[in-house]
């Protein structure tokens, strides 16, 4: 863990603070004006993820490989495609990213999303696969009906 750098995700951007002998100082701003739901930094501080929740344009995922100086937009996790007009109408689409964590293997990440699903990447966030065991679990549908609207609204 880099004890001397702090990334603060806020509704108006991602703000980075760095600590030196004089104390904490503001050292960077990214996505100014955009709601940043969360950020996740690697132990060495070089890799940083930022999940954005843009009101009109959806949930976006960005990665920095230089500690937050420059950013590249990634394809965010995608829900399984549903065919058929009626089914498609209520089919799930990414509504928010509310948790990210390292799996502990190189380039490995977990991503918790709304509506309730868990995705995994093994290539540093370039591609994502849904966790089928949880997605297909019979309890998920009942759970989603009860609690998902609340979770979705709390992360927006």
């Amino acid at each position: 863990m880099n004890q001397n750098r702090l990334h603060i995700a806020s509704r108006k951007g991602l703000f980075t603070y760095t600590r030196d002998a004089a104390g904490w100082r503001h050292s960077g701003t990214a996505f100014l004006g955009s709601p940043v739901a969360l950020s996740l930094a690697s132990a060495d501080g070089r890799t940083v993820f930022a999940a954005l929740n843009l009101g009109h344009f959806g949930t976006k995922l960005h990665r920095s490989d230089d500690g937050g100086t420059t950013w590249t937009e990634l394809e965010p996790p995608k829900y399984p495609k549903v065919e058929g007009a009626d089914e498609k109408e209520k089919a799930p689409a990414l509504a928010g990213i509310w948790s990210m964590a390292w799996t502990g293997t190189p380039g490995g990440l977990w991503c918790g999303t709304a509506p309730g699903a868990l995705f995994r990447s093994d290539d540093n966030g370039a591609t994502w696969q849904i966790n089928d065991a949880l997605w297909d679990h019979p309890a998920r549908k009942a759970c989603a009906r009860r609690s998902c609207p609340r979770i979705c609204s709390s992360i927006r």
């Binding site: 976006k60 394809e75 829900y79 549903v82 799930p92 689409a93």
Partner: peptide, 9 residues
């Protein structure tokens, strides 16, 4: 991805 969602709506 800014205009369409996961289901191309």
């Amino acid at each position: 991805g800014y205009i369409l969602d996961d289901q191309d709506r």
